[in-house]
Every structure is written in C-alpha cells, then in structure tokens.
Design a protein around this nucleic acid. Sequence first.
DNA 1: TGGAAGGTTTGACAACCATCCAACTATCGG
DNA 2: CCGATAGTTGGATGGTTGTCAAACCTTCCA
Lengths: 101, 101
Amino acid sequence: MRSPQHPATDDIQLTEVLRALSDPVRLEILGRLAREGHLYCFELGAEMDLHKSTLSHHYRILREAGVTHTSQEGRRKRLTLRRDDLDARFPGLLDSILAAV
Amino acid sequence: MRSPQHPATDDIQLTEVLRALSDPVRLEILGRLAREGHLYCFELGAEMDLHKSTLSHHYRILREAGVTHTSQEGRRKRLTLRRDDLDARFPGLLDSILAAV
DNA sequence: TGGAAGGTTTGACAACCATCCAACTATCGG
DNA sequence: CCGATAGTTGGATGGTTGTCAAACCTTCCA
C-alpha cells in the first residue's frame, strides 16, 4: 500500500480548498475534525450512512486539496486537520468557515 | 425582463458560497469587485476572453449564491459585492478569501 | 424606426462528481 | 492459516459543470 499523497503547504490551492469544502459531507467531516482533533475513518463509516467507498472518495478529495492529513495506524486510518498549514497559507480562512459550520 | 433573483441574507448558504468561489474565473471577478467596488459586466467581457454567455453563467452563480448584487442601469448591468451581508452571515470569510486572491 | 449595444436563454458537448456495488489489498486476532 | 476488519480501486450511473454558439430580448441613439 503506497503512502497517500499530500500536497506541500505551498502547493495548497485556494480554489481546491474551497471546492473541497463546498460539499455538505466534507464540511461535516471538517467540523468533526475541528471539534475532536482527529478521527478514524471507520468511526464515520458507522455514523454517516454512506457507502464506505463514497467516504473513501471524500477522504481523498480532502487530502489532495491539502485540508487533511492521513496516517496509517495498523489497519485503521487516522485523519487530522492540517490547521497550521492552512492557517499559514490562508490566514483566517479555516476559522471563519468553522465558525459557520 | 424580470428582476434577477437574490437570496435573502439569512438564506445564503455556506456550501453555495464556497462552491461559487471555487472557480478561478469567479474568484477573479470577486477580486475585481473588492478592489474596484463595482463593475459593469461589459467591462469584463472586453477583458476576460470568454464568451459573453459564459460570463453570464458565472454572474448568475455568484448572484444566486448571494455573493454579488446585480442592478440594471439602462442596458448595462452593474455588479457589487454583498460585503455586509456576507460579513454578517460568515464573519471573516470574505476577508480571508480576498487576502489570498 | 431601425440598427447597434449589453445580456440572457437554450441547446450541445465533453468533463467531472457523488453515489453505489463488487472485487481487491492489507492487517489483525485466534 | 482463516475469517473478520478497514479501506482502496474500478466500473456503472444519473446529475452537474464550464464552455461555446446561435437566437433572443431590452434599451439606447441617430
């Protein structure tokens, strides 16, 4: 299993971040990540009533946009928010979105 | 000619605003609006090398998302940014996006 | 009054998106 | 080693998007 692709901080594009967050499911994931600090994919699978492959698709979009970081822990996958990177690149953006979620 | 549809301030949805601004053309329009205060559609048509119907499509998305206000002046159309409405609904969001454009 | 200017609408089209499903890979527990 | 767990991948599908082009509608002006 190849390690997942994360864009470098400087390569995070505003249009991609905005597009990634313009979906209710991904906005919900973002809110959970912000509140809980991190989460395991299988936790969402148990709650969100979406096929696991659909969720996997959303994880990829968030990751490739630079919003989340994914790390492997055994057979589980752990998501965290790239808060520092996003704040460095687009100051205030994340906070204003999270305040509205 | 029916007057164009603008959502009420309370009806502006975060996902729609983010989606509206996740396109380079519309982000460019936003930047110009923020810098110049207002603009007439035909000015963009002369500069942006896109078919006028394509631009009309972008105007509609910005307007229906609640990002811009459109008013008719003779046969011209004048766009302004709904800055107060957006600030009231999503404090800080517009500023952080404009800072990154 | 007739033509030009400024936009909208409709249709077409290729590209993309969210979703599901089935099959697959990889890891853990017994 | 085997079955269960956790996700990814590829295909299919119905819907949406960005773009152009042609036709249309308003408004102005000469």
